[in-house]
């Protein structure tokens, strides 16, 4: 019963048989290739949008009004109605969805505990993030637009429905990270749960909540489908978000994209660049907020 068949002289400790290392290396290369496969289209899209949009963007483009008919070339009128619409409608949707979403997350984390209702709400909230945005548009159309007509408000409702589960999930994750010791310190002084939540937990979670909300806003700002049947797509600026049809950057891009006229297409690229810039800025601010303001809840 001697030792196993390894030669007594200096053992061969080099790379294992060719095919094993080759397979390992090939797989690693494939993984890198997958990443490259993703960078290429992303790069293309960004490059095209920037290249084609940059020549259109100007102060006139962003603030001019109204949106000209499709046949007209770029340089006449501007996209202000769409910019205004995006700001107003997304802003209104944020005002509705974020507080409600945070409250919902507070229910799940602070009050719900392990009971079946909280589990159901949490689960269905995640499921709701998968509901197609067009269904949200049809929903608001059915219960609101048919009775009260098109308006920025209707669009805000639809966007709000999209944002709500996203805000709930991201806020919940942040609230969960707030250490119990913070809460207990406040309870020990005789505070009620509401007070503890408002004065201790929320401030500690604020950075993460804001960051999550910003990302939800970025997603909502880019949505088109929910707005199709709720705000229509008009060419005049409508600052009254509660009455009358409106428009938005994504709506305009959508309607311009299928136009054969170069003027319309150019305006589409300009609007696309504006929209991407807005989403991009929101994303960067969100990352910044996460980096600077979430240290206490980690």
């Amino acid at each position: 019963m001697t030792a196993t068949a390894i030669p007594q002289q200096a053992p061969d400790l080099r790379e294992p048989k060719g095919w094993r290392s080759t397979k390992n290396r090939t797989m690693t290369i494939l993984m890198v290739v997958s990443f490259v496969l993703v960078i290429i289209p992303l790069g293309f899209v960004l490059f095209t949008v920037i290249a084609k949009g940059a020549s259109i963007i100007s102060w006139q483009f962003l603030t001019g009004s109204p949106i000209p008919p499709n046949v007209l070339p770029a340089g006449i009128g501007g996209m202000w109605p769409a910019v205004l619409g995006t700001l107003l409608i997304t802003g209104l949707a944020t005002l509705m969805a974020v507080p409600l979403g945070v409250l919902g997350a507070i229910y799940l984390n602070e009050y719900g505990g392990k009971n079946w209702l909280a589990a159901l709400i949490g689960f269905m909230s995640d499921v709701m993030t998968g509901v197609p945005s067009i269904v949200m548009g049809l929903f608001i159309f059915s219960i609101w637009v048919l009775h009260f007509g098109y308006s920025g408000l209707a669009g805000a409702f639809a966007l709000g429905c999209l944002m709500l589960p996203v805000v709930i999930r991201s806020s919940y994750e942040i609230l969960r990270l707030v250490p119990d010791s913070l809460r207990e310190g406040s309870y020990a002084l005789g505070a009620t749960k509401a007070r503890v939540t408002m004065t201790v937990v929320l401030p500690a979670a604020l950075g993460g909540i804001v960051s999550g909300a910003l990302l939800a806003i970025a997603r909502a700002a880019g949505e088109t489908a929910p707005l199709l049947f709720t705000i229509l797509t008009v060419t005049e600026a409508n600052p009254d978000v509660f009455n009358g049809a409106n428009t938005s950057l994504p709506s305009q891009i959508f309607s311009n994209a299928s136009q054969p006229y170069t003027g319309a297409q150019d305006r589409g690229w300009g609007a696309a660049l504006t929209l991407i810039a807005i989403c991009f800025i929101l994303m960067i601010v969100a990352r910044f907020v996460t980096a600077r303001f979430t240290r206490y809840s980690r």
Binding site: I6, Q8, Q9, A10, P11, L13, R14, E15, P16, R20
Partner: peptide, 20 residues
């Protein structure tokens, strides 16, 4: 050293090492 060979020498594969 493992049986006279430097375990951390250049050209030594950790995979071959762990097989033994």
């Amino acid at each position: 050293d493992y049986r006279g060979a430097n375990l951390y020498g250049s050209g030594v594969s950790p995979i071959a090492v762990r097989r033994r």
